[in-house]
């Protein structure tokens, strides 16, 4: 009898605490959105000056883009190979392996390319960006810059945001192209699909404006905007302690991933849903 009462009390407490956390969640979210938007405006305001210092931006493109190349390139090849293999397995029963090229290319160009490279970017470059900015905040480097009459938004935050925004579509292009090559390798070299039909069916199905521009370019630009915004915000907003920084980097990866996936659904519906 006593056990029964304890059990009910515990369950009630669990639900109550979930409810409490849920209620706290939304006001907090609105507050963060507000702070994040203010930060975004200040960054955008600092962008023109940042463009006048291309050296800073180039250095950041190196840190965010070039250093992400290994993971992007290797992942691209593997994803393409998996698509080739899975596609073959599913098409071979219908004798439709000639369509494999089209399948791999469409999957990559429309979805996998921009989405997966954005997720990888969040994990590698986004978290590094958050950690770097958080560390600068914790060691008072940003404050000392302000004391030296240098606006940290112009000097530190805007160049990084801009560089990330440039790097994202570049990485997505590389990921997608390598993915298609990976799929081609598996399909033609390993599985015996005819090379001619692989490429010609692909070319017949993939449209430049509707698929490549919409998919790879526009999607990756949108994802890049969001990923870099979140990364910079979490770094700037974090508690200036080592625990605060590590929580902020986790939040960057989680929030960027969720936002990218949600946005992908919206963009896909807008771009490809009409058919």
């Amino acid at each position: 009898m006593r056990f029964h009462r304890v059990l009910v009390a515990t369950l009630v407490e669990i639900f109550a605490s979930i409810g409490r956390r849920g209620l706290r969640f939304f006001p907090l979210l609105i507050l963060r959105l507000g702070r994040g938007s203010l930060l975004l405006f200040r960054i955008l305001a600092g962008l023109p000056r940042a463009c006048l210092r291309p050296g800073l931006v180039v250095k950041q493109i190196h840190g965010l883009g070039v250093l992400s190349l290994p993971i992007i390139a290797v992942s691209g090849v593997f994803v393409g190979m998996v698509l080739g293999l899975q596609g073959y397995i599913n098409l071979v029963d219908y004798g439709a392996t000639a369509q494999l090229g089209a399948l791999v290319a469409l999957a990559l160009v429309r979805e996998m390319g921009p989405v997966i490279s954005a997720l990888l970017y969040a994990g590698r470059a986004g978290s590094a960006l958050t950690a770097e900015i958080g560390l600068m905040k914790a060691t008072e480097q940003l404050a000392s810059m302000e004391m030296m009459a240098v606006d940290p938004f112009q000097r530190v935050l805007a160049p990084r945001f801009l560089a990330g925004l440039i790097a994202m579509p570049l990485l997505a292009c590389i990921f997608t192209a390598l993915g298609i090559l990976g799929g081609w390798y598996i399909a033609v070299w390993q599985l015996g699909v005819d090379s001619g039909s692989f490429w010609s069916q692909m070319q017949a199905s993939v449209q430049f404006v509707d698929d490549v521009v919409d998919g790879v370019l526009i999607k990756s630009l949108v994802f890049g905007f969001v990923a870099n915004w979140i990364a910079v915000f979490e770094g700037y907003d974090c508690l200036p302690t080592s625990e605060g920084i590590s929580r902020a980097t986790t939040r960057t990866v989680v929030n960027t991933s969720l936002t990218v996936l949600a946005l992908d659904f919206v963009l896909t519906a807008l771009m490809f849903g009409g058919n």
């Binding site: 160009v109 192209a177 993939v206 430049f208 490549v212 790879v216």
Partner: peptide, 11 residues
């Protein structure tokens, strides 16, 4: 990579 996508992959 972008040109490959434009020229060889798409129509």
């Amino acid at each position: 990579a972008f040109f490959v996508l434009a020229m060889r992959v798409s129509d």
